[in-house]
Simulated scan of single mutants.
Amino acid sequence: MRAVAPVICLLLISATSAHAQEEPQVDCRNAVAQMDLNICADRDYRAADAELNKAYKQAMAAMQETDKELGGIDKAYAGAVEALKKAQRAWIGYRDGQCELAGFEARGGSMEPMLVSGCLAELTRKRTSELKQLVESAEN
């Protein structure tokens, strides 16, 4: 029996963990309850973040090409990849701080997560647009 108890505990933990990871079914087009609005705002942010990641990869590839071209002229001209990394790190710090600040409008309330996620989504979409413009400029 003692050997079975740890196995049963692991199975219960696994089942609980898998259940906790399931996303609630929420119709975001008709959400009205605050919990649903929070879930929808988080989904919106995660979708925006996925687009940002795609745009960042494209921008990184474009900056690698820029470095290759400029480095062929003079190694001192290369550095676009490092500049993009530096800018992205700085932007992440700005985004996180700005969106934490946005949450203070409802600090401690049930609306705070929605405000933070909404801010994250908005700033992320703006950054995605900037990265796409960077790629377009590099291609011209």
Rank of each mutant, 00 (worst) to 15 (best):
D36K: 07
D42R: 14
E105K: 15
L70T: 12
D96N: 13
R2K: 14
A76I: 04
A90V: 05
A90I: 07
E105D: 13
V81R: 09
C28G: 11
R127L: 05
K68P: 04
G118N: 07
A15P: 06
R107A: 12
A5P: 00
L12Q: 09
L12G: 11
L12W: 11
Y94A: 02
K85A: 10
K68E: 15
C40A: 03
A78H: 05
D96T: 09
R46P: 01
T16C: 14
M35G: 09
E69Y: 02
S110I: 04
I13M: 04
Q133R: 11
A41F: 03
E105W: 11
A48Q: 01
R89H: 13
S110N: 09
E139W: 05
A18V: 13
A121F: 02
G72I: 01
C40P: 09
K132V: 02
S137K: 14
G97E: 10
Y77P: 06
G71H: 06
I39C: 05
R46A: 00
E23F: 00
Q88F: 08
M63T: 15
K132W: 01
N38G: 07
A102F: 04
W91F: 13
G93W: 05
I13D: 08
G71P: 06
R89F: 12
H19N: 15
A76V: 10
G71K: 03
I13W: 05
Q58V: 04
D96I: 03
C28Y: 10
K57G: 08
E105H: 12
T66A: 15
I39H: 03
A33P: 08
G93S: 06
A55S: 10
K68C: 10
A102R: 14
Q34I: 02
E130T: 11
S14P: 00
A31G: 12
G71Q: 05
K132L: 03
A80E: 06
E105N: 14
R125S: 07
A90F: 02
R29F: 05
Q25R: 13
D96H: 09
E105R: 15
A102W: 01
D74T: 10
E130G: 07
G108C: 06
E122C: 00
Q34P: 06
V81W: 07
L52Y: 03
L11E: 10
T66L: 15
D36Y: 02
Y77F: 15
E82A: 08
W91V: 08
D74I: 07
L37D: 08
E105T: 14
M111N: 03
G108R: 01
L70H: 05
N53P: 00
L11G: 15
D36T: 02
G108K: 00
L12F: 13
